[in-house]
Write a protein that binds this DNA or RNA. Sequence first.
DNA 1: CGGCCATCGTTCGTGTACAAACAATCGGGC
DNA 2: GCCCGATTGTTTGTACACGAACGATGGCCG
Lengths: 154, 154
Amino acid sequence: MKRGTLETLSGPDADGASYVLEEQIGHLLRRAHQRHTSLFQEKIGDIQLTPLQFAALIKLRDVDEVSQNQLGRMTAMDAATMQGVIHRLLARGLIERKRDSADRRRLQLSLSRSGQALVDECADIGNEISEQTLAPLEPEDRRLFLDMLSRLSF
Amino acid sequence: MKRGTLETLSGPDADGASYVLEEQIGHLLRRAHQRHTSLFQEKIGDIQLTPLQFAALIKLRDVDEVSQNQLGRMTAMDAATMQGVIHRLLARGLIERKRDSADRRRLQLSLSRSGQALVDECADIGNEISEQTLAPLEPEDRRLFLDMLSRLSF
DNA sequence: CGGCCATCGTTCGTGTACAAACAATCGGGC
DNA sequence: GCCCGATTGTTTGTACACGAACGATGGCCG
């Protein structure tokens, strides 16, 4: 009855059928990332920071003052995504924002006093989270894994 | 061994200040996942499927008929997340949905005719995408990497 | 000087991701 | 039979993720 593409129906040949979702890199990356954010939420507890918010705070601690777009590049966030993150951090008073007098397009970001305190308080937790995420691997494999993973990140 | 809180505000020794964002597993997982979805979009092109939509279609091809929650577990999707994915696939006529007569809570999902055709067409592209995502690694390292990664996924 | 293009921040629309609450239904224990 | 707890699907609210378009500014070049 069906014509056109002759070989359409389910030949037992092992081409298309060989796509096993559970073995695909994309699926595994997504699940590993899910597990990490889950661990992050659990460990960060009452502090109520998301991984992205934490990343932004850490970077601000490292560089002191940057514009929104710069911070976005440092943390691999889209300019649109930054909007949300920045507004939530501003609303909690963890960062401050002021116009750059030299380049009036820019908004310079910096840690507030309480933001600084929070980062100092959380840095150790951050390391714990990373360690716990890697826990299923043998300690001697972790460095290798991170090296390989970083090669897959742009 | 001391598991107390005493050394939490320790100096710039090994912990606190040494949190380098670019070396954290969570950040790397996120960036690798970003790169993968970017490659996916590019390769899938006009077909306009997202990784999740593709995963759902692939699983439906494998199992023929399942309920929404079952499919969600197979593809690691939240029940709420499934809603969106399913509605978009329904809107494009790629899947069909009908009440289970035995258990009237359930909605049984299955591939439509055009959904079946689309999956057959895309399976090869899926393999290409996975291969290209892994391209930065030496071929002999890829299996090892996938093994380690899968251990980090729940 | 005046265009021209890049950059900066913003908004909108679409698509994950998940917690939390909900009605409907099922199953088991009594 | 009936009640109770579990499961199924749904909605709401919050938070990433990114393409696309926009106004405002800045640097450059002719």
